[in-house]
């Protein structure tokens, strides 16, 4: 009933044990297991870094109850890709406080990485990145979402994101008049 891919528990445990040295096993809310480089996980996620440092990593799969398997797969995928293709300098500059510094633009591969996601998968990934304290992945996903809003009218944005307009006509008019210049071209 619970077995998904027909792999035995013993085999799983052995695999996990083999990988124990340089990888971490993460378990999604729906019980799937994913393996990720310990170094990348610690570098990209403050939460995982804390867990690794604090010894609260479970060899049989660390429970991440807030994250579904699809999102976790994307997180792990991102970490592994990141480990392979990003010089660490990019990471350092991305962590400069965004009070002042411009955001570091996503790399080409990061852009592709989020572009292929469905609407829901993108939001699942934002939430997962937020939960895991993954600043760089948050940058990339928030950038993608902002791209979906840029230059659009409020009507168009509502349509893209299924936002329900709960304003009265009068309230909306008041908002538009308050800073009319921003609404000139609607």
């Amino acid at each position: 009933m619970e077995v998904d891919k027909g792999k035995g528990e013993a085999e799983e445990t052995r695999k996990v044990a083999e990988a124990d040295r340089d990888t971490v096993t993460l378990k999604s809310s729906d019980g799937k297991l994913f393996e990720v480089s310990k170094e990348a996980a610690a570098r990209l996620s403050t939460v995982l870094a804390g867990m690794i440092a604090g010894g609260s990593i479970d060899d049989n799969g660390t429970d991440l109850k807030q994250i579904g398997s699809e999102a976790l797969e994307n997180v792990v995928d991102y970490c592994n890709k990141h480990a392979n293709s990003i010089p660490s300098a990019a990471l350092i500059s991305s962590s400069i406080s965004f009070n002042t510094a411009p955001f570091k633009e996503p790399e080409e591969w990061e852009r592709k990485f989020v572009d292929r996601l469905s609407h829901d998968a993108l939001f699942d990934l934002v939430e997962a990145a937020n939960f895991l304290g993954m600043e760089r992945l948050l940058d990339v996903t928030c950038h993608k979402i902002s791209e979906m809003m840029k230059g659009k009218s409020p009507d168009q944005i509502r349509e893209v994101f299924n936002i329900k307009n709960d304003y009265t006509k009068e309230e909306l008019e008041e908002i538009r008049q308050e800073l009319a210049w921003a609404f000139y071209d609607d």
Binding site: F98, C142, M149, I157, D166, I175, A182
Partner: peptide
Amino acid sequence: LPDELRRSILTRLTFKDAIRTGALAR
């Protein structure tokens, strides 16, 4: 999304686009 994340998204928009999000919903 938590306010903190939505704010972070808004900081990537121009001021004009950010103002216009005020008209989306309450």
